[in-house]
Amino acid sequence: MRTAVALVRACHPGPTAAVTVLAALLAVTAGHSAGQAALVATAVLAGQLTVGWSNDLVDADRDVATARRDKPLVTGEITRAALRRALVLASAACVALSLAVGLLAGLVHLTLVAAAWAYNLGLKRTVWSWLPYVVAFGLLPAFSWLALDPPAMPPWWVMVVGSVLGFGAHLLNTLPDLDDDARTGVRGLPHRLGARRSSVLAVVALVAGTAVVVLGPAGTGPWWGWAVLAMSVLLSVGALVLGGRAPFRAALVIALLDVVLLVARS
């Protein structure tokens, strides 16, 4: 039981759950049956487990150096050997489940998982740290639509919003660890911009995503879509005026609104 709990903590459970739920919602929106949507979500879950566990293995020495007590490898709750074994099993499951969804869709999913691994293995230290997030989140809707019979591509604006959400997610995910990262030589885009500018950029990007959801689909958007866009703009203006942690919190709220809008308008 202790090992199981440690594995859950090491997979970055918040982002893993969020991406898996988003994949399930996109699969339902695309028109899959409950069983097929569950298969899509399970494949995504396996992929996210490999991303989280590989991240903790790659960063193990850095996490020890910064005394990260939230990391099971640092606290000794799990060994590197045990985490490697879990990673191998999850990787095999990810490949099998992805291809079970469909060859083309499976290859797309494996591509977005590879992009996340590229981030873990080195891109996080460069000015291109945002690119894996943009690629992975942009391709996530394509995984669901290409799994249809016959395969189809999602509306263009769905993939654009996915990429924008990915960019915002990168900035928000990195902000809490900026100081620890700086001490261990990680210099991604948010580190070069700094906390303040990264927060502002996240808010601006996510508001742009809201606008794409409202304006992208053919026809006039529903009144509630315009209301959400207005709310996002007001949140962003208020957060930028207040400063401090306000832009970070506003970006989280706007990201949630974008996901709700994306599913509702797809």
Rank of each mutant, 00 (worst) to 15 (best):
Q36W: 06
G185A: 02
S33K: 01
S98T: 08
L97W: 02
E77I: 00
A46Q: 04
L39H: 03
A205P: 08
T20Y: 03
L121Q: 08
G225V: 05
A41W: 10
P72L: 03
L131N: 12
L242M: 15
V19E: 09
V259R: 05
E77Q: 01
V19L: 07
N120Y: 10
A65K: 12
G194N: 13
V108H: 05
C94P: 02
V8E: 04
G106K: 10
C11P: 01
W128H: 15
D56N: 14
M153H: 06
K124N: 03
V5C: 07
A37W: 05
D61N: 12
T126N: 05
L252N: 12
F248R: 09
A227K: 08
T210R: 04
A86E: 03
A211W: 05
D258P: 03
L262F: 11
D149K: 13
F137I: 11
L189M: 15
A250S: 09
A205E: 09
T29C: 05
L104F: 08
L171D: 06
R84G: 06
S91R: 04
M1A: 07
G31D: 10
G138Y: 03
L171V: 11
P247Y: 08
P132S: 11
S144M: 02
H12L: 03
T126M: 12
A195E: 13
P151C: 07
H170N: 13
A136D: 00
L104S: 11
L87I: 07
A142V: 01
W130H: 14
D70A: 06
A65F: 12
R265K: 14
V58A: 09
W223C: 00
G14W: 13
A34V: 12
S98Q: 08
L171C: 13
A182M: 10
A4W: 08
L252W: 14
L25T: 03
A34C: 01
A46M: 05
L146T: 05
V164F: 12
A211C: 12
L242R: 15
D63P: 07
F248Q: 14
G138S: 06
L240S: 05
T42F: 08
P132I: 12
R68N: 11
V5T: 10
F248W: 14
G209F: 06
S198V: 15
L57P: 01
G243V: 13
R69E: 11
G31H: 09
V158L: 15
A136Q: 02
A82T: 11
